[in-house]
């Protein structure tokens, strides 16, 4: 599903910052992967490369059979339709209702209204927000807002979901709710990649863990734990 071969990313600025160096990894369809590591280890860069928000400085990335460095500008939207995103800061549109926030993702890829009307309530039911459809994000708790964000990410049935610190702003109870929902989505075959600092969560979930430190993969194990890399 996702393959990286010798990927490096250097940010060109006044000072060159080497964010990732020589990353090799493969993530198969249906996997649930945690990417862990301290701030600045390169977790966000890794997720940004997968959604082609950025291109690697060198190396090859293949997502869903397509080479990202070779992808044409106008093909990028098609790639992104196969990927759902969940952000630490939710990135909801504050002036739209819960329903509209989720429907927005479907409308943006030009899905007919009748399909949108069927699908959005179904997805909101899955994340337990069916009764909050016409509320605005500021009327919801952080955990509920994150669930709207998840609903938006899954509404188009993506092959991959990428979550960047999805529980970073949530208390433990809400974090667990979010993880349970992600695990349920994963059970249906969606690949899930979660970048996180949340030690307790990673240890309890017992999934594949890829640990980054200073832009390099220092550990990659099935059913792994958080641990501090030296």
């Amino acid at each position: 599903m996702i393959k990286m071969v010798n990927v490096s990313k250097v940010y060109q600025g006044e000072v060159k910052v080497r964010a990732l160096s020589h990353i090799n990894l493969q993530i198969d369809r249906g996997e649930f992967v945690f990417i862990v590591g301290p701030s600045g280890a390169g977790k966000s860069t890794l997720t940004r490369l997968i959604i082609r928000e950025e291109l690697p400085t060198s190396g090859q990335i293949i997502v869903g059979g397509r080479s990202l460095p070779r992808l044409k500008e106008r093909e990028v939207p098609l790639l992104r339709r196969k990927i759902g995103f969940i952000f630490q800061d939710f990135r909801l549109l504050m002036e739209r209702t819960v329903y509209e926030n989720v429907a927005f993702a479907m409308e943006a890829i030009e899905i007919p209204r009748s399909t949108v009307r069927e699908r959005v309530p179904a997805v909101l039911e899955m994340v337990g927000l069916k009764d909050k459809m016409s509320m605005y994000p500021h009327e919801l708790s952080g955990g509920q807002q994150q669930r709207v964000c998840i609903a938006r990410a899954v509404v188009n049935d993506p092959l991959i979901i990428i979550a960047d610190e999805p529980t970073g702003n949530l208390d433990p109870d809400n974090s667990w709710d979010i993880m349970r929902i992600l695990a349920a989505i994963n059970k249906r075959g969606t690949t899930i990649i979660t970048a996180t600092h949340d030690r307790e969560m990673v240890d309890k979930m017992k999934r594949r863990v890829i640990a980054l430190s200073d832009g390099e993969i220092v550990r990659d194990e099935e059913r792994g734990t958080y641990r501090n890399e030296a």
């Binding site: 939207p77 098609l78 992104r80 339709r81 549109l93 927005f104 890829i109 030009e110 938006r152």
Partner: peptide
């Protein structure tokens, strides 16, 4: 601009935006 960024991330084409 926030709306535009989110639209791009969910895979809207530039023309749709």
């Amino acid at each position: 601009r926030r709306e535009v960024t989110i639209m791009k991330l969910v895979g809207a084409t530039n023309w749709y935006i």
